[in-house]
Design a protein around this nucleic acid. Structure first.
Lengths: 191, 191
DNA sequence: TGCCCGAGCCTAAAGACTTTAGGCAAAAGA
DNA sequence: TCTTTTGCCTAAAGTCTTTAGGCTCGGGCA
């Protein structure tokens, strides 16, 4: 029927990512993927352990892509410039690839997470903070705060959570980044 | 087999919420619910339109509970006190009821969302800001920032995203709240 | 008290997705 | 060319969702 279509874990993962962007990460299904390759469902199970495995791979792909973009954006920038650039990487990625962005939030088991590009993200955020004057304990706090704001804002915005109130989210986004920059420059000392 | 068990949309919703806390919101299934009531699956469909409807109801329940807690916490507090109280409501709720918290993030269609307790949340956050000196456009920006931080922090923490780095999240949480308080007190003016 | 009717739960059934086991044929290597 | 590997297939069982239609329990009516 479809002799040697050339299935690959790679290709399946990529196709899965595209599928996620089209129908949502939650709706990514082994069956639908098989359909797209015009192949029987069971055939996919030689390349992917199971549905969870597939999703994990998509998540890892998304994390990589995101980290790559972040690295690009950060190159040659510092201070607020870098802050804004990094923030926009997340936001733009989420808009361009909602399914992949959702995938990047997929909960990975500890070992997988440790081997993922997730660590690059943390490192980059920390690098960004070199433009501000924070010593170690506070640096970690700041990394976590930035991560929270980026992820929180983007996911609420994507979910339509801001769509009912008045000022457009573009304005808010830039004011929030201004505020974060100001905050990092005058980070309050421990009590 | 089980004549008149006394199914109700109410009871199903509540049981669904408990189920969510036990197995995760995504894993809430009409079948499992039927099993718990020792009733055939089809019987639930007289009380709940479908799986999506069930999840929507659980989401609405969670939003209500959360709003009630927030209202309690905010009563008689102002300024940083109120900020910390509200923040902890979200965080504690997420810890006590992870499934319900996830449910509260369930994407509702616009009309449902407009009629949900979600609006109370926005109002309360705005009320909280009365303790700080922000005029209208900035108030909305601040509401959105707070929402982002609370949701972002809590969801990353729950997802284990902070669990690999050193300082404990308790410390970070309180430092983040300090920082937010400081930020709100000295909110940077528009450029 | 007895009857009746509707609400409440059931059986049946079809459709979709997941996952495993085992088979056949095409591609790759000797 | 022959053989081995590998890739996709058939078959099958299990789970969940959802709809259609039936039986009966329980409360209201006479």
């Amino acid at each position: 029927m479809a002799p040697r279509v050339g299935l690959t874990t790679e290709r399946l993962t990529r196709a899965g990512a595209e599928l996620a962007d089209e129908v949502g990460f939650e709706q990514v299904t082994v069956s639908e993927l098989a359909r797209r390759f015009d192949v029987k469902v069971a055939s996919l199970y030689s390349h992917v352990k199971n549905s969870h495995d597939l999703k994990t791979r998509i998540a890892l792909l998304a994390l990589e892509e995101l980290a790559d973009r972040a690295a690009d954006a950060l190159a040659g920038r510092a201070g607020k410039d870098a802050l804004v650039a990094l923030a926009n990487v997340y936001r733009d990625y989420a808009r361009e690839h909602p399914g992949r962005y959702a995938a990047a939030q997929f909960r990975l088991d500890p070992e997988t997470a440790a081997a993922s590009a997730g660590v690059r993200h943390a490192r980059m955020t920390r690098a960004l903070l070199r433009g501000y004057d924070l010593d170690e304990p506070d640096q970690t706090h700041a990394v976590r705060l930035l991560g929270s704001v980026f992820h929180g804002y983007v996911s609420i915005e994507m979910g339509g959570g801001f769509s009912h109130s008045a000022p457009d989210t573009e304005e808010t986004w830039s004011r929030v980044l201004d505020a974060l920059d100001a905050l990092l420059r005058t980070w309050p000392p421990a009590p």
